[in-house]
Design a binder for these strands. Structure first.
Length: 404
RNA sequence: GGGGAGAUACCAAAGCGGCCAACUGGGGCAGACUGUAAAUCUGUUGUCUUACGACUUCGUAGGUUCGAAUCCUGCUCUCCCCA
């Protein structure tokens, strides 16, 4: 395929990026690639430790996809070997290493989800255990000689852990080197990573130079702030929107982001064309309510299709705005004439993890039957045949109880 | 190799023989409010039990005691200082 003019490529590549080091080299590489009609090798390494992808991961995967669409070669590295070390980046404690079986299993799940974003047909998929695993101890020592202790411990995450008197295992120092070695092996032209990966990406550049290779350009994407509006999106902070999540949750969670993140989300996680972004920004400021609903709709549509997005919008309007029963509330059958404890019904519906929790909910007015708050937690239900009662637990758990 | 400090619920962090299911903050959940699953305010936050209460929990295994998160011993792990 013919490559787009370099300026146009750059414009697409720059969308949402925080930093490209050095950008001039990227321009040169793109020029050369176009001239020789040879795609660039774009590297992205992923750690198969947490296989649940969310919008935060999508930021960088989408960037990789954009390179694919521009005709370049996307190389996704499953960090099979590095996962057995554990990336210390941004961590305040040592990661537990994985076994190779776990890695394989996680990698499968990862790809299963990543295919929603990447073009698998055109993707080069590799596992760094294939080359890192066969290095000799001597090779490893050779690698370590290229890095100084001072450089390692001046890194934020290490120095913080050091100051906080937390453990840093020696093997964690090898992580950036291993990642850099990937770049040497693949002879990558560009490596993608979050801003927190800057150090690791730069090590790749250095190691390539030491091996007399062309140096990769490092492209850093911002870390997407999660739905809480403060910390980066992460499963452990529970402020994430998973790309595999059901449409209703996806829609609702998207709406829960603070208003000032609306534009950022449009820019980083949606396909809204670049030339429409200014208008979107304007709308986000002037009409945040609708801008956010549009955003939520767009996100659900991307991962579940238009129909699902419409349904999700409807569900949200029904449950949250009108506080009424959603169409998709599950039904729960009760034998007519027999009494059943409400607490048990709630437990069977999985609406509450324990009876203690259920009591608390009831005490606080969080449970209602046909819009009437339940006050007695020992309530016994006795349904007549054909009777229907709407049970609401908490903010958004609904069920239709049916007498059978 | 030597010396010292520490391990508490989802996280952080008090408690240091009974009043401790364990202060406090964060998080979570609920109620009110709201364009919102945002913000704010209030309440709540081990399991079982209608309730009285019972049971499990303070790194781990034992021990002392009427009684232990709190005292003693072994073990595991972590941190600091010196070499």
């Amino acid at each position: 395929m013919a490559f787009l003019p370099v300026e146009e490529q750059i414009e697409i590549i720059k969308r949402g990026t925080v930093e490209i080091v050095p950008v001039e080299e990227l321009v040169e590489k793109l020029k050369k690639s176009k001239k020789e009609n040879k795609p660039l090798k774009i590297k992205l390494g992923v750690d198969p430790t947490r296989p649940d992808l969310h919008l935060g991961h999508s930021v960088i995967l989408r960037k990789l996809r954009q390179f694919q669409d521009l005709g370049h070669e996307a190389i996704l590295i499953i960090g099979g070997f590095t996962a057995m070390i554990g990336d210390p980046t941004g961590r305040n404690s040592t990661r537990p290493p994985l076994t190779s079986e776990e890695v394989e299993e996680n990698a499968k799940t990862y790809i299963e989800q990543a295919k929603k974003i990447l073009d698998l047909e055109k993707l080069t998929l590799v596992n760094n255990a294939d080359w890192l695993g066969s290095m000799s101890f001597m090779d490893v020592i050779g690698l370590t000689s290229k890095m100084t202790v001072a450089r390692m411990i001046e890194r934020d995450d290490f120095s913080k852990r050091f100051e906080n008197k937390e453990a840093i295992s020696l093997h964690e120092f090898l992580y950036p080197l291993a990642q850099g070695q990937d770049s040497v092996h693949l002879q990558s032209d560009v490596e993608l990573g979050g801003t927190d990966q800057k150090f690791n990406l730069l090590v790749g550049r250095q190691l390539q130079k030491d091996s007399d290779l062309d140096q990769q350009v490092c492209l850093m994407m911002p870390l997407l702030v999660g739905t809480d509006g403060s910390a980066k999106m992460s499963k452990s902070y529970d402020n994430y929107i998973g790309i595999d999540e059901n449409p209703n949750d996806m829609y609702g969670k998207s709406l829960s982001i603070p208003d000032d993140l609306i534009y950022t989300y449009y820019e980083l996680v949606t396909d809204v064309p670049i030339d429409e972004l200014p208008a979107v920004k304007d709308k986000a400021e002037k009409d945040p309510r609708n801008a956010k609903h549009d955003l939520a709709f767009t996100i659900v549509k991307m991962y579940h299709g238009e129909e699902a997005a419409k349904d999700a919008r409807k569900h949200f309007e029904q449950t949250v705005i009108n506080k009424s029963v959603p169409d998709d509330a599950p039904e729960f059958e009760l034998t007519a004439g027999e009494s059943a404890r409400l607490m048990d019904v709630i437990k069977e519906l999985n609406f509450s993890p324990s009876n203690g929790e259920t009591k608390r909910l009831i005490k606080q007015g969080g449970v209602s039957l046909d819009d009437e708050k339940v006050e007695d937690f020992a309530l016994e239900l006795a349904m007549k045949a054909g009777e229907e009662v709407v049970l609401k637990v908490g903010k958004r758990k609904f069920a239709i109880l049916k007498g059978v």
